[in-house]
Amino acid sequence: MPADLNMKILVVDDMSTMRRIVKNILKQLGFANMEEAENGQEALQKLRADTFGFVVSDWNMPVMPGIEMLRAIRADEKLKHIPVLMVTAEAQKENLIEAIQAGVNNYVVKPFTAETMQEKINKIFK
């Protein structure tokens, strides 16, 4: 099933530049409905207050890192079905294993290209 281009996507990153980059790539891929959060805690508040179809999140963030947010999403009955793509500079094998165990749907290592992002999104929604 291809991704619904109208679904609401939450872009989570503490760096404003990265949020803008990810939003631009998603826009290029045809998505139009995007919101932003600066950390995992803010993201969880937004996810609980609205209906989102997809989360793209950074790993390293103050207040609540991406991995903790991912665990909270998977532990929440209402949110656990939402696909999560982790975008991170953490290329270590241990982090990847930790993310997989926490229930990540896919993983993009920075710096990445628009093609890589598209490929990962296609895999998540195939």
């Binding site: 530049t17 920075k110 290209t113």
Partner: peptide, 20 residues
Amino acid sequence: DDKPLIDIITALSFQDLVAQ
């Protein structure tokens, strides 16, 4: 020019790595 333009945007992710 569609691809080069989005490539400019993604190339700017260097700033995130610099900031880290």
